[in-house]
């Protein structure tokens, strides 16, 4: 049996009409609804694919306050997960990525009664600030091979090997699709372009079955939910939350907008001579100086 884990995150819903800001420009968290992050949802889709295609069982984990349960519930709808894990403790508050990864590492190690995991998925990044370090750091702490930007994958169950396509795009360079092979266990962050590619009618019917099952299960998601605090996760309090975070947020400020106060020169093009200085300027820039 393939054991698949998914690390997810509850995030503010940034879509227009749902998001609300305070007058100082910060996010108004009270007025903005929280949802399962869109990248987390894509990671869930990848796990669901493993369930339909390889009969995997799925365990979902998230670190957060008790309200993060709602993200676990939404994730169960998408994955028909067997297990939901909430890692919640006041001590975790204020954690940076390293301290978060510490919690998630122990969380993953406890999935399915501390059974060995084969694949753990997480989102590409979160939309509210976390920029994609948590996944790779958790992977490293777990000792799982980390694969980023995975767009497509296939698992050889006998050899316990994954073949995956990864997207690599670097500034100013051609985009590369890299096909790699790697023994399990792996920790994967799923590229936003990922789409589950069910290839037969039977797989599609299977997907229907499991997704219906997932919807049904999620109605009683509490039955599947396990809540862990730092003790249950065997965590050293010095390594989690603020004490375990190398970094702190020192300051939050508005980004000054010097350039917005442009002095506009209005030019009447009916006299072509007026355009001459403009053209000089354009050419100057075009020629690189």
């Amino acid at each position: 049996m393939l054991n698949v884990g998914v690390i997810i995150k509850l995030e503010p819903d940034f879509s227009e009409g749902n998001v609300s800001y305070n007058s100082d420009g910060t996010l108004n968290r009270a007025e903005t609804k929280n949802i399962l992050g869109p990248h987390s949802a894509i990671a869930c889709n990848a796990a669901f694919y493993c369930k339909v295609k390889y009969g995997a069982r799925i365990s979902i984990g998230t670190m957060g306050p008790p309200i993060a349960e709602s993200a676990l519930k939404q994730a169960q709808v998408l994955t028909d997960a067997e297990e939901l894990n909430l890692y919640s403790d006041r001590l975790f508050a204020g954690a940076d990525t390293l301290a978060t990864a510490e919690v998630l590492k122990n969380g993953v190690e406890k999935m399915f009664g501390a059974d060995k995991m084969d694949i753990v998925f997480s989102g590409h990044r979160a939309s509210d600030g976390e920029t994609g370090q948590t996944g790779p750091q958790t992977a490293w702490k777990l000792g799982y091979t980390f694969l980023g930007n995975v767009m497509d994958f296939d698992i050889d169950l006998d050899r316990k090997v994954i073949v995956a396509k990864r997207l690599i795009s670097l500034q100013g360079m051609d985009t590369i699709i890299e096909e790699i092979e790697c023994p399990l266990p792996v920790f994967i962050t799923i590229d936003p372009s990922y789409k589950s590619a069910f290839s037969t009618v039977s797989q599609r019917l299977g997907a229907n079955k499991y997704s219906k099952q997932g919807r049904k299960k999620s109605e009683n998601y509490a039955q599947f939910l396990k809540t862990y605090d730092s003790q249950k996760l065997d965590l050293d309090p010095k390594l989690v939350g603020l004490p375990g975070s190398p970094t702190i947020v020192y300051r939050v400020e508005r980004i000054p907008r010097a350039k917005t106060n442009r002095k506009t020169a209005i030019i009447d093009p009916s006299n072509p001579d007026n355009l001459t200085p403009v053209v000089t300027k354009i050419i100057e820039i075009a020629r690189g100086k």
């Binding site: 940076d96 990525t97 370090q133 996944g135 750091q137 980390f146 670097l170």
Partner: peptide, 19 residues
């Protein structure tokens, strides 16, 4: 970028420092 972002994470995780 999508090489360095991951590499920075794993390197700093190994060096146990902040990123």
């Amino acid at each position: 970028d999508n090489i360095g972002r991951h590499l920075s994470s794993t390197v700093l995780a190994d060096l146990e420092s902040g990123l």
